[in-house]
């Protein structure tokens, strides 16, 4: 298991190779990337910023939860920060597991949890010259507050 917050382009193939093992009958690689339209506005690029030390710790915690719950050591996650162009990968999650259902479920768990818990923000730049912080979900925040004590 390995996780990292990085400020360089992500290489999904490298993460795929990292979780390769003969015990695994299935490998799932999830790639999240920068989309050209958000809420009807034409996006030209974006900047990710992070509370880096906490994001690294939280991402490690999430990957560890997935590894433990689905019983595989082969969970590798990288999240990129900094300036990204359209199509650039912002997050790559690779999970190797003996069985495909568990591989899919573990990868899905990691992406859903990191979207709720990672202290990372993105500022979108639009074709018309505007830029804005993307609004995260307030509902997710309330979940985190109510779970804060359980997580400790």
């Amino acid at each position: 298991m390995r996780t990292a917050i990085v400020d360089r382009p992500l290489d999904a193939c490298a993460l795929l190779a990292e979780v390769a093992h003969h015990r695994n009958g299935a490998t799932v690689v999830f790639v999240g990337s920068v989309r050209d339209v958000n809420d009807g506005a034409d996006v030209s690029g974006l900047d990710y910023s992070a509370y880096t030390a906490m994001a690294a710790r939280e991402l490690d915690g999430i990957a560890g939860e997935a590894a433990q719950r689905w019983g595989t050591p082969d969970v590798v996650v990288e999240h990129r920060i900094g300036t990204l162009d359209l199509g650039d990968a912002s997050v790559v999650i690779a999970v190797g597991h003996p069985h495909r259902g568990d591989a899919f479920d573990a990868a899905r768990y990691v992406i859903e949890e990191l979207k709720k818990r990672l202290p990372i923000w993105k500022r979108e730049h639009y074709r018309d010259g505007r830029s804005e912080w993307v609004a995260g979900s307030e509902a997710a925040g309330q979940v985190i507050l109510s779970e804060a004590k359980d997580l400790r």
């Binding site: 999240g32 994001a55 997050v91 979207k115 990672l118 202290p119 990372i120 912080w133 995260g136 979900s137």
Partner: peptide, 10 residues
């Protein structure tokens, strides 16, 4: 103490 805006990673 960090005050954390709604997060938008992923």
């Amino acid at each position: 103490v960090a005050i954390i805006p709604p997060v938008a990673g992923g």
